[in-house]
Structure formats: C-alpha cells, structure tokens
C-alpha cells in the first residue's frame, strides 16, 4: 500500500520514538477518539509495520492504508 490519499481527522507524529512508543501513542489517541475518527500515525520505526497492524486487528479497528516511505511510514486507522 503506497501513496494513499485518505482524509484524516488527527495526526500522531511518533517519528523518533523507540518501539513501542509509536503504537502506544496511537493507542493513546484512539482511546479518546469517537467512532469513525481517522487517525494518521507517522512512525520511522519499522517495528510499527507489524505492531500497528496486529493491534488494529486485535482492537477491531480498521487500517485504511499504509504509506511505506524511505524515511518514515504513515498509517491511517479508523476507530470502530
């Protein structure tokens, strides 16, 4: 999944955070989000490619798209 053009409501910029910081930052944002909110997560930690997918599925949310760039990855997650 690359170069997605997805509308989002909030952004979590976790670039520079060590694992599991990006996932925990995303969870913290989703905790207070209303159903239907789309959160964009920026992470330069490759572990997020696994962590975020696994958690989104476990929590019943939806991963709308992922941009995998050289410098960082962008995840779009919609709260169920």
């Amino acid at each position: 999944m690359t170069d997605t053009d997805i509308a989002y409501d909030d952004t979590v910029d976790a670039r520079g955070s060590a694992c599991p910081g990006p996932l925990m930052d995303l969870i913290g944002e989703m905790r207070d989000a209303d159903s239907g909110t789309v959160v964009r997560l920026l992470s330069d930690n490759d572990q997020s490619l696994t962590d975020v997918r696994e958690w989104v599925e476990e929590a019943g949310n939806e991963l709308l798209g992922v941009d995998e760039d050289d410098d960082y990855h962008t995840f779009y997650v919609e709260k169920a």
């Binding site: 694992c19 996932l23 969870i27 476990e58």
Partner: peptide, 10 residues
C-alpha cells in the same frame, strides 16, 4: 500488557 508482548523492550 498493552502491546503484543509482556514488556516494552523486546
């Protein structure tokens, strides 16, 4: 624990 393992450090 919040993530997929029992501690933040793998």
């Amino acid at each position: 624990y919040p993530i997929q393992r029992v501690h933040g450090n793998a």
